[in-house]
């Protein structure tokens, strides 16, 4: 008989910033817009909440955008990649349903 372990999922609240940078996601003119910022150092230390805009990716579906992000090598951490997948899927659902999308917030349907 084969034994297979069952594990209850738990959230990891620890956040580690991706050395490749971070993304700002929003909807504009019927598209999902993803801005990628490279991290910057200010006065000798890494300021992780501001950055240098280096590329903008636009699309209408999460998969195409995820594939483009991977192809361009803009993400280097698994937790960051899974976060992006969740956010972009939410953005696509909001776009399809003509509702508001705000990054890191729930989407609501009226």
């Amino acid at each position: 008989m084969k034994d297979v372990e069952v594990v209850m999922a738990r959230e990891n609240k620890k956040m580690v910033f991706d050395p490749k940078g971070f993304f700002v996601i929003f909807l504009n003119d019927g598209e999902i817009v993803v801005e990628h910022y490279e991290n910057v150092k200010k006065e000798g230390k890494l300021e992780v909440e501001t950055g240098d805009l280096d590329v903008v990716i636009k699309g209408v579906d999460a998969k195409s955008i995820c594939d483009t992000i991977v192809e361009m090598g803009l993400v280097s951490r698994l937790d960051h990649a899974t976060y992006l997948g969740r956010e972009l899927e939410k953005a696509e659902i909001a776009l399809r349903n003509n509702t508001e999308y705000t990054q890191c917030e729930d989407i609501y349907f009226s």
Binding site: V40, K42, E47, E49, T50, G51, D52, L53
Partner: peptide, 17 residues
């Protein structure tokens, strides 16, 4: 000269772009 907004009370008030 570092791009910091002078006297800004925000946490990371830098102009980069």
């Amino acid at each position: 000269e570092n791009g910091r907004i002078i006297k800004a009370p925000g946490a990371v008030p830098y102009i980069e772009n």
